[in-house]
Design a protein around this nucleic acid. Structure first.
Lengths: 349, 349
DNA sequence: CAAGATAATTGGAACGTTCCAATTCTGTCA
DNA sequence: TGACAGAATTGGAACGTTCCAATTATCTTG
């Protein structure tokens, strides 16, 4: 069954033209006569020809492979799944396909997949680096002129473009909102303290407290895995404090959902008895009950923008590193018990 | 910067051997002398050589590209994200890389991505078909001898392997469990009625009701989008019935979460006032509050098995279609208000 | 109608690898 | 020392495409 491959030569033969002509019609060159083009296209369809990009790519060493790589540190986190979807959208419609790999936070794995991608000749890479990634890991990539766009996390010292959300401003706005609602003891829950993202958000938290003339209490900062389970654990710990917090900003939405779960386990009603704000605005944030107040970063849009940036660099040939921080905005829903409304809740249904 | 590519010939030259020898060491052939091998490897490292799989692949037309494709119909659904992670695991460790594409249920998109993948010479394809996929869409793929494994959904008439979960048995067990707890009016919520999966699950639901000598009322079957929002909508409708149900089996976990949300919006406590069972056992199912009773299909494991099946076929050269139905099991947690326990809930923390 | 311009087509060389058959090298033994 | 076996190495052809320079066919136009 595994038929002989149909090549451009077979078509040329069947259509009574030369392989060069066939090649020309394949790349939709204006040089070829309409009637020949039609004839060739007919034969192509008839014989079930499939273009061999590998061979083509071999010849035109300059132009690249029409493959872009995307590697993320945790695909099971829906933030990254949505990011990947966003990337896929623009990349596909530009005629590229994406290699998607998941590193599960392992830099070894990351090294493997990146080198594997290089062997396949990716034209560019979108990378959400695993924890512990160093500039050296990206060195050879940039040395060979392959554009790289880092998303979500920066890599210190790496000469590559990056697209991160404005973590500082986002968290600052969240805290200000809570303070505006009258909360004095606001916790910061979840996240690993050894990451840049964590520290940026934490700094936003601290700065906002200072701005509002509130004291910062270190015991109100409780770190944990940036996951739903981590959120449960964090709120557990926070509720053990002698002086309980009355509100919390969370490292991300997953943590925030966990926090809501943990509150319910203690017969506390998130949104009523305790205010919760997340970060990311994943898709479930709006349909959850209570709908989650969160800092919207629009993961899918971020994926799209990252892809656009990458494509721009690929086309430009030259990749000068540019660092974009994407602005964010606080989306107020029910979980922070603001004056907002049952109105919104109802209109949802 | 975009340096000249380092080729096998450059290495040969620098190491003072022939390109053939270099090729031999690249494929770890036992034919080459240890000292030469070492020398060559050193040069490879020094010059920063990167293997060109495209060229290699061109030569050895028989052996394939070390790329496998995976296309799913909805990557934002964490079921599929986890599936992809499972596939990635085994595929990576077998030295392959995966092309991942998302079709968002569009068969047009699906056609595009599959043809693009073919051009890149994938060795095999794992496909969760978009709704409306027909056997004809896979025809040319199997004609050219590329192994295909369908997951989650079958495609009627297609001569390809498939790996689906035991939808009938899973739903039957869920309903029996609820009936065993004394429920008489059990709803079936969510899902699109024009899919095979829906009908299998629905049949399981009906058969179980008959088994337990309960009447089947068509008004208790309310379909909706298989998403969280769809779940909210479905329970809304179900609660409008004159004779309300007291329990529900849901098309999948996303729907089940939506149902819980919808119940809360009506001041009903899922697990206490109303029993809910999901399907899939996505990762959040165990950490949610209440923890979701659900039919476990282990998406990640399913991805792994699908990948193994595919690799087997790739290696065998011959792909005889085999249809595997993967068994499932009911995982009882809190959301069905079984006699189970606060115990489990507590031990979780 | 010659000649130049334009349009359409074409044959080879090249891309970076693998494979085959052929060659060189080393050592052994009569 | 000559012959031979085995180990190690090697040059060239091939894979399916693109590109370049060159060729042929078709028009214009003076």
């Amino acid at each position: 069954m595994g038929k002989e491959r149909v090549t451009v030569i077979d078509i040329a033969h069947a259509a009574g033209v030369s392989k060069s002509t066939v090649s020309l019609v394949l790349q939709a060159s204006p040089l070829v006569n309409e009637v020949t083009r039609a004839k060739v296209n007919a034969v192509i369809r008839d014989l079930g020809y499939v273009y061999n990009r590998g061979a083509a790519n071999l010849r035109q060493s300059n132009s690249k492979s029409k493959i872009i790589g995307i590697v993320v540190n945790d695909l099971t986190n829906s933030f990254f799944a949505e990011l990947a979807v966003g990337v896929d959208m623009v990349v596909q419609s530009a005629g590229y396909v994406q290699f998607l790999a998941n590193t599960a936070e392992s830099v070894d794995r990351q090294r493997e997949v990146i080198s594997s991608m290089r062997e396949h000749g990716i034209s560019g890479l979108i990378l959400s680096p695993a924890r512990g990634t160093e500039a050296a890991d990206l060195k050879s990539l940039v040395a060979s002129g392959i554009p790289v766009v880092n998303v979500v996390r920066q890599v210190a010292g790496a000469k590559v473009s990056s697209l991160v959300s404005d973590n500082h401003a986002g968290m600052r706005d969240a805290v200000r909102h809570l303070a505006g609602l009258g909360h004095h003891r606001i916790a910061f829950l979840g996240g690993f303290p050894d990451t840049a993202v964590f520290n940026e958000r934490l700094q936003g938290y601290r700065d906002a407290l200072s701005d509002m003339d509130l004291a910062v209490h270190d015991e109100l900062v409780v770190s944990s895995a940036p996951s739903r389970a981590g959120g449960v654990a964090a709120i557990e710990r926070a509720l053990l404090l002698r002086e309980r917090p009355t509100a919390a900003v969370c490292f991300n939405d997953a943590v925030a959902f966990g926090v809501c779960d943990g509150l319910r386990a203690h017969r506390l009603d998130p949104g009523e008895d305790f205010a919760v704000i997340g970060f990311d605005d994943v898709i479930e944030a709006q349909t959850a009950v209570p709908a989650l107040t969160t800092v919207s970063v629009d993961p899918q849009g971020m994926g799209r923008r990252a892809a656009q940036l990458l494509l721009k660099q690929i086309n430009a040939g030259r990749a000068d590193a540019e660092a974009i921080v994407s602005s964010v905005r606080l989306v107020v829903r029910q979980s922070c018990g603001s004056a907002s409304d049952k109105r919104e809740r109802l209109s949802l249904l």
